[in-house]
Design a protein around this nucleic acid. Sequence first.
RNA 1: GGGCCUGUAGCUCAGUUGGUUAGAGCAGAGCGCUCAUAACGCUUUGGUCGCAGGUUCGAGUCCUGCCGGGCCUACCA
Length: 575
Amino acid sequence: MVRKMSRTLITSALPYINGIKHLGNLVGSQLPSDVYARYCRAIGHEVMYICATDEHGTPAELAATKAGKDVADFCAEMHDVQAELARGFRLSFDHYGRSSSQRNHALTQHFAGRLADAGMIEEVSEKQVYSNADGRYLPDRYIEGECPNCGYDGARGDQCENCTKQLEPTDLINPRSAISGSTDLEVRETKHLYLRQSKLRDKLDAWIDTKKDWPILTTSIAKKWLHDGDGLQDRGITRDLDWGVPVKRGDAEWGGMEGKVFYVWFDAPIEYIAATAEWADANGKTDADWERWWRTDKGADDVNYVQFMGKDNVPFHTLSFPATIMGSGEPWKLVDYIKSFNYLNYDGGQFSTSKGRGVFMNEALDILPSDYWRWWLMTHVPEGSDSEFTWDSFQQGVNKDLADVLGNFVSRITKFCRAKFGEEVPAGGEYGAAELDVIATITARLKSYETNMAAMEMRKATGDLRAIWVAGNEYLQAAAPWTVFKENPDAAATSVRFALNLIPLYAALSEPFIPDAAKTMADAMNVGIEWPKDVGAALNALPAGHAFSVPDVMFAKISDDQRDEMQARFAGQNA
RNA sequence: GGGCCUGUAGCUCAGUUGGUUAGAGCAGAGCGCUCAUAACGCUUUGGUCGCAGGUUCGAGUCCUGCCGGGCCUACCA
């Protein structure tokens, strides 16, 4: 019987373009989505794994200005920087796109046109603060002034962070531009498009209700937005900016909207689709090749679509983007599962870009190989609640799990074999009760591992994987070939052969989490990486006489001195 | 203010629809092994499950209140 291959579409929330992301950003979306993508590929799914840089919006423009660069050039450079870091962390995107691409321009304008045709767009005239000195409209939080409630002078136009009172920009006393400090501000009348998502409230509500298996974090945030106060509010989807997707109605000009662009939160999720089109363009594929992932009328009906994101992104993915898709009246693929994450904190506080607090992706790779970070971060991925990075925990986790349990296992058995039998799998003896016992143990753990991975219970899956590594050490300790060898070399050879066969199995099972180490193990054993269909068969895969080599130490330990040094280096200015 | 999440061993966390003596990893202690990155294995000490009530034959699990931590609250993205 020919079984149709499962097809899995995976998107990671788009990292914003304005700077290098820290480990908290990494672990909240890109890293777990990569682990999941690698797992799905390993077990034979057809996978399309998409990410992109999110390049529009005021912060991108300001970051470019600060860097003294044209915003388009700035974004192009930062995209390359982020793409390089993604490669450094071995994030296996099928395509890493850009929300500023022509594909996204066209598709965003297309959606807007469809939504307008369907009566889902409303033109609203509103008042916005304009800064003459800066020559631009200012988003609420880029206006600062004195809080009318508590007198705090650094209050922002959306909220006072001192007394937490929510504000309107016009509430501020002595308002000034947060960009230039200029007080030459005026209120201007300007027209904007609103997405009438309130019309889809009941439909969205019913849709969310069907998602019984989604994380509580995901559904509770969606429900809050649907039912809080007056319920789901319409949302402005355009801005008075230069940099972005120009407002058009499909291919046509949009009267009265000249010089305006779509709001970044309208175009960013559409980039998931557009990036898949970019993938097709970059790989000599046709439109049909990407549409079979996104159009349910063109082959995407059997696709399972999973999104990964931090909790701050949930409202846009549960409400705004589905409203865009539903409202278009076209058969685009809706998300099937939303995996959301809490935050990773840094040593007792939050990661902070402005204070230089915490570890950023580029710095992390300067210090240690990506597998170290991937493993520790995934063993602490903030699934249930916020979690915390500390150097002590990092050192302990990496040294124990990777160096002692896995790395040392590979080291001890390959070196023992080389010393007693040479660098090839030894012949002699048959597997007995001890080996069958290990096969049974690993089979059970593997089943748990696969169940947890399928459910995206990443942290539990790391526990299963680790237990499978431990099983190797337990076996060796009990078999003690170094003792047996003296009296019965054949029996020792059996144990060694079995233990060596564990290495390719470990390579395959570990690959989603620590791909580089997996390759090292597979290369040392002269095999490819293949997911085991049957553990017993997999542990008979290396025949007697199969040549291997002893790999270099896979994971050097982090010393106490190194740990203390890094802790001091990354404590930030205000520590 | 409102809403949501969370509080289980020194630390990080599991605990299924309420059902016997509450589990794992790390850290600590003891023993063993000596192939290995002073690595590994075995055994073991730690918990009135935030506090106070309530429902129940029975509560870590359900309800109420209180205390602590966190997040969100729609123009940062």
